[in-house]
């Protein structure tokens, strides 16, 4: 199987009704006794159909999870640092999983390098109540990585220039 074929099998083809459900729920579920009934009513669908489709989307990973989404900033985690690391290619899978499993890391990704300007291939978002706390947590990551860390930096956000959230059709 080629990479493209593989990518296609991993992409579940959502149809027009799935899209309606996504559009109706991406800003949130109704806070009612039977939220899925309300979504179904709004879209003129049977609740069993809504549940089946959402279950299917969850099984396929189109829905990552359903629940409450806390606002880090409001909860006192006012500092976020994007830590970026230069890790040997052959170690990145193992070490990426290690860093991603830390409870203060919210996102952890491998991304491409751009040499010579940008040598970093592992990104880990670190949250803390203060800059110093973020710096201390990044030090914990550095000591875990040891010699496999060929260099790192923390990029603190200084301003949110735009934040709209992802919107789907």
């Amino acid at each position: 199987m080629t990479a493209i074929q593989l990518a296609m099998t991993e992409t579940y083809e959502i149809d027009a009704i799935d899209r309606q459900i996504i559009a109706a729920t991406q800003r949130g579920l109704p806070l009612s006794n039977q939220p899925y009934h309300d979504v179904a009513k709004q879209l003129n669908l049977d609740v069993k159909d809504v549940l089946l489709r959402m279950q299917n989307m969850q099984d396929k990973g189109i829905i990552r999870r359903i629940g409450v989404i806390p606002n880090h900033y409001k909860l006192g985690y006012k500092s976020n640092g994007m830590s970026v690391w230069n890790i040997p290619e052959e170690k990145i899978s193992e070490l990426g999983q290690l860093v991603g499993s830390l409870d203060f890391v919210s996102h952890c990704y491998q991304r491409p390098r751009f040499l010579p300007e940008w040598p970093y291939n592992l990104f880990a978002m670190v949250h803390g109540k203060t800059h110093d706390e973020v710096i201390a947590k990044v030090d914990v990551i550095a000591s875990l990585l040891g010699n496999n860390n060929r260099g790192h930096e923390i990029l603190f956000s200084t301003k949110i220039l735009k934040k709209t959230g992802l919107r789907i059709g």
Partner: peptide
């Protein structure tokens, strides 16, 4: 910030 499903845009 919200209560409900989190969608994964890439999988769509």
């Amino acid at each position: 910030s919200r209560f409900g499903p989190i969608y994964n845009a890439e999988k769509m």
